[in-house]
């Protein structure tokens, strides 16, 4: 069985200047649960955007479930994306749509266009969507407009969308940075349980080191686009953490959103992914 994620000497350079990832090598087996920690600008978001096949590597190899992502046709790329679910920090739902429709969007990779249109048109509740919304605790918001929900509720909608997609590999880029600590705890354990039950590979980046250490058997520290450590939580010392989070001279002056990979190389964004 090929590993879920195989990264060898991966380099990602934006605009030919800024290396967001610098010779990163990492391997994640199927069913593994990994927490990614590191300072702002460490390259976490860039790594996620490479892992869900939105960006392409500048150099190096990236294999997902044994497929080299740079060699796929348009169709197989879409099929691969359908097997990888992503939960983002924020702002990744369509606010004008109802909650039901945003969650249904998780199925877009698998449904035919006609079937998808019919599901959006048909007002009967969809079983998978109801189940997913119940799991994240907001079943009552089924027909609500997404824009009318609070930040925390929107984050649960995003989790529900990933549940409906039912991917083999679940990626979550700071999924709890916009919710209160109690809900953060809840969402992280929900993700960990789901991965456990379904035998899914889970990679989560977390701002909160405590959450990472409490819920994940493997912690990867990323700094300046490089692997800083890759250890089980009981081997992570205070020195390692302070080394990870101290900003080095070289990083100063580079716009943070470029380092974070928050700025799309195709579209300049008005606002970075999060201003926190």
């Amino acid at each position: 069985m090929a590993p879920s994620i195989e990264i060898e000497n991966l380099v990602k350079v934006f605009d030919g200047r800024v290396a967001a990832l610098d010779s990163l090598s990492l391997q994640v087996e199927e069913g593994e649960k990994v927490a990614l920690i590191g300072p702002s600008g460490a390259g976490k978001t860039t790594l996620f955007r490479l892992l869900n096949c939105i960006l392409t590597p500048t150099r190096g190899t990236l294999r997902l479930q044994g497929c080299d992502v740079t060699r796929l046709s348009e169709k197989s790329l879409r099929e691969l994306r359908a097997r990888i679910g992503t939960i983002y920090q924020q702002h990744n739902l369509v606010p004008q749509l109802r909650v039901a429709h945003n969650v249904l969007a998780g199925k877009l990779g698998r449904l035919s266009t006609a079937r998808a249109l019919w599901n959006f048109w048909d007002p009967r509740p969809d079983g998978d969507v109801v189940r997913a919304l119940t799991q994240v605790g907001i079943a009552g918001k089924y027909w609500e407009r997404t824009a009318a929900l609070s930040g925390g509720q929107q984050q649960r909608v995003a989790v529900a969308r990933a549940l409906v997609q039912n991917p083999d590999i679940l990626l979550a880029d700071e999924p709890v940075s916009s919710v209160d600590p109690a809900l953060a705890q809840e969402i992280v354990s929900l993700l960990a349980d789901l991965a456990q039950e379904g035998g899914k590979t889970l990679v989560v980046s977390l701002h909160s080191v405590e959450l990472a250490l409490a819920h994940f058997p493997r912690i990867v520290g990323l700094r300046g686009g490089k692997l800083y450590f890759d250890l089980p939580p009981d081997q992570i010392t205070a020195e390692l953490l302070s080394g990870l989070f101290t900003r080095c001279e070289a990083e100063r002056g580079v716009p943070e959103r470029v380092l974070r990979g928050a700025v799309s190389p195709v579209f300049p964004l008005d606002s970075p992914y999060d201003k926190a």
């Binding site: 096949c53 691969l80 994306r81 983002y88 877009l108 990779g109 964004l269």
Partner: peptide, 11 residues
């Protein structure tokens, strides 16, 4: 582009 990127990422 962020919601659109998310949709594209579902395949």
């Amino acid at each position: 582009s962020r919601p659109l990127e998310a949709l594209q990422a579902t395949g």
